[in-house]
């Protein structure tokens, strides 16, 4: 090896490291992509909020594209996205079910009365079992599930208009909604 080149190795290694660190600044180390994207959504049945005795069966959603929005009355960030969910519900373009994650029924209902109910149905997951099956780790989370019951997209954290326009809407178009 050329004598001078050899002494440039430390600098070269350092610059590579800087490249990665720069990239790292724009990544979120807390956001864990779900391995479930591209896989069948776990099937579950659970009580429906406000409809005593009735159960929701996710298998019944086959043939429809739908959103599953995981939220809770105790979750502050969920209130941030709530108005946007209301706007989405207005357009009636897509079915959106809510999953009240580890929530008390009465408290969840209170929030929906106070802030409006954007959901077609609200499913209760009082003990968080469905949440575990879906790999929920930070509410709110939103799943987009296609006609074949495959999870096509997952968003962690509050939805924003930007996410909706750049990620969700194009995907919905692709899926023919």
């Amino acid at each position: 090896m050329n004598r001078t080149l050899k002494f440039l190795i430390p600098l070269a290694l350092f610059l590579v490291a800087v490249g990665f660190l720069t990239k790292g600044l724009f990544l979120n180390p807390r956001e864990v992509p779900s391995p479930l994207v591209g896989k069948p959504a776990p099937v579950f049945t659970a009580p429906i909020l406000g409809e005593a005795g009735k159960r929701f069966n996710s298998a019944d959603m086959k043939g429809q594209v739908w959103l599953l929005n995981v939220w809770a009355s105790w979750c502050a960030a969920c209130r941030d996205e709530h108005p946007l969910l209301m706007d989405m519900a207005q357009t009636k373009r897509i079915v959106m079910h809510g999953l009240a994650y580890k929530d008390v029924d009465a408290e969840a209902q209170q929030v929906l009365i106070a802030m409006g109910n954007p959901y077609n149905k609200v499913i209760t997951d009082t003990d968080g079992k469905i949440g575990i099956d879906y790999g929920v780790y930070g509410v709110p989370e939103t799943y987009l599930i296609d006609k074949a019951g495959i999870i096509r997209y997952k968003h962690i954290g509050p939805l924003t208009p930007e996410i909706l326009l750049t990620k969700v809407v194009p995907l919905l178009k692709e899926l023919g909604v």
């Binding site: 001078t4 440039l8 430390p10 600098l11 610059l15």
Partner: peptide, 14 residues
């Protein structure tokens, strides 16, 4: 700082 130091190193060390 580090880049400058390593560059100086590459120039002087040989």
């Amino acid at each position: 700082v580090i880049g400058g130091a390593l560059l100086l190193f590459a120039l002087r060390a040989p």
